[in-house]
Amino acid sequence: MNYSWTVLVLTVTVSFNLWSFTLNNNVDAAFDSEEVSINLSSSSTCINTGKSTSQILGYLEKAIDEFWNTVPTSNLRLKKGTLVSKGSDFESDPLCQGGINSPCTPNGGLTVSDGIFIACNDNIVNFASTSIAAATLTNNIEGTAIKGALILLNDRTGSQLASLDDGAFISVIAHEIGHAIGLGHSPEKENLMYYSTVTKRESLGWDDIEGTTYLYPKRDKLFGLIGCAPSGFAERDPEITGEAVISPSHLRVTKEMEKNETISALFSLLLGLLAMPFIIITLQKIKSRK
């Protein structure tokens, strides 16, 4: 499996004429839970980021509520966690073994067992430049399910994170969370997943929304009640019925299954729409006879 390690820089230099969200791994991996907790290292001093851990927790909450939990077409719900102690390695060790190469071989000592973990880190291999704000790696993937991801904030002396205002700091954390949930960079500046900070970041762009929708598609509960729960899901996991407990990664299916699922859903809906007038007419006729 190949996956990219990703960083965010604090300058704006280029743009491309190509629109698309991208992924940071080649297996379309996503968290297999609809609710993902994000914790912050309690042992991080974060001195050179210019922010305290309690401030960073506050930014984390805004990054979740103002960006990733706002996608109407996505089931993903991120949750602000707490301060968690995981050891000093997270503050000093490199993200990848043998330096930053592509593809990155994750440093096994920094594996995150569950959810997303944020730490301040001052390793020069991770942050060759003070203009690099943060680095993220989904370093625990099983099959197509992300189990854990690590976000490191640049805590080197002279880190330009310290010069960011609250809004920019929040967007840096939000950008890194985007990588942690499986998204790669977007080529367009209006998207949060653009590789660099921009003048002002208010909300997600279309690439961000579509990428989140692709990895964590919304399945409104009522959909199962009208008989349109796709049959393909039951074949993949016979223990699961309906749609309520199916995890997002299971929802992404092969193109053939997706085709069958869509046809099945459209057919069911069409039948439902056609049947409704007949039901109404029949009820009206019964009523008029009475």
Binding site: V7, N24, S129, I132, G184, Y195, V253
Partner: peptide, 17 residues
Amino acid sequence: GNATESFYLPKESSTAY
């Protein structure tokens, strides 16, 4: 960052309801 990197494009399909 200050270099370039290969990112992956989606290869399946996904439907939100």
